[in-house]
């Protein structure tokens, strides 16, 4: 237990240290530009000349200004501390001020994204499971459906998302909710479909033979063998599916016009040149994904243990 904690902490520490080290070269140009405007002595003094030089040379020539890179208002790469501060400012601090649901609160935007994720996940897993059941039942369905499922994942969702939004408004669907859930489910259904096909096909020939000796019906074979045998696979794919659904929901918020949701925050942060907002939204999304996957993982452990499986 302590050993796992130790290795997890080691990896975390390594990431944070690398991040801090990367901030210096990433921000040196911005720091020097800022110092130039403030009238500092920089080598070389003109931005045009600096453009030709590498970050490392600039750092070597302007050692005194390296530390400036850790305190910029609009850094290329913010420090972990700046991201943490921004996150707190837009979440916990908002709650303390009683403005949890204000447009500047990431809790509000996270909630919007979470709702789309939830509907997309629900739709996606339903499609995935029904598809898998159909595919396992019939060779013909497998041959006619599976190629399309694979092709669907080869189309970049970023290209498809704006079309889905435009089309759904064309057919008179109000608001972003439905198209976002659709985009989300588009990413989510595939891992569920693939995992469930594998799971429903996981019974061994001996397990199938046993039911044959009982002269069991197809429905009995499905309910008493295929379904329980597929459950471990289902949970594994649900965990991938919910992460995919979250990505889908965020992608659905990217096309112009969206004003709420983590995806919109990322886009607005980009348009208004506020990198801290982007990073805070990114981390909020990552934390949300972590929480969702962990919840499913716990459910899986409880359920499978009750079913006598050891994992």
């Amino acid at each position: 237990m302590t050993k796992t904690a130790l290795s997890v902490l080691t990896v975390l520490a390594a990431i944070v240290v690398t991040w801090y080290l990367a901030v210096a070269p990433m921000n040196i140009r911005v720091a020097l530009d800022q110092a130039e405007r403030a009238g500092g002595a920089i080598d070389p003094p003109s931005a045009v000349e600096r453009r030709e030089m590498s970050n490392w040379v600039l750092m070597a020539k302007n050692r005194d200004y390296i530390s400036e890179g850790y305190n910029l208002e609009r850094p290329r790469l913010p420090t972990p501390k700046q991201v943490a501060q921004e996150l707190w400012k837009t979440t916990g601090a908002m709650v303390l001020k009683g403005r949890t649901w204000s447009k500047r609160s990431l809790i509000y935007h996270g909630w919007i994204t979470l709702q789309s994720t939830f509907w997309g996940f629900l739709l996606g897993t339903t499609i995935g499971i029904i598809g898998a059941v159909a595919i396992v039942q019939s060779r013909v369905i497998e041959m006619s459906v599976m190629p399309w499922a694979i092709i669907s994942q080869a189309i970049p969702i970023v290209a498809l998302a704006p079309m889905i939004i435009v089309l759904s408004s064309q057919v008179g669907i109000e608001g972003r909710g439905f198209p976002k859930a659709l985009i989300s489910s588009y990413l989510c259904f595939f891992p569920v479909l693939v995992g469930m096909v594998k799971g429903l096909r996981s019974p061994t020939s001996e397990q199938l033979d046993l039911l044959k000796t009982y002269s069991a019906s197809g429905v009995q074979r499905f309910l008493k063998l295929r379904v329980p045998a597929s459950l471990p696979y289902l949970f594994t794919s649900l965990k991938i599916g919910i992460a995919a659904a979250l990505v889908g929901a965020i992608v659905g918020e990217l096309p112009t016009g969206a004003i709420s949701g983590l995806g919109a925050r990322i886009l607005i942060g980009d348009q208004f040149g506020t990198p801290l907002a982007i990073w805070a939204a990114l981390f909020a999304a990552a934390i949300l994904a972590g929480v969702l996957v962990t919840l499913l993982d716990r459910t899986q452990q409880v359920l499978l243990r009750r079913m006598g499986m050891r994992s």
Partner: peptide, 27 residues
Amino acid sequence: YGYVFQHAGLYPWRTIGKNIRLPLEIM
């Protein structure tokens, strides 16, 4: 007939009692 396989072939998600119940449920 009842068939006893070369390997026990119990369903891992069923308890021993439920494994024995399986043919009885089906029949």
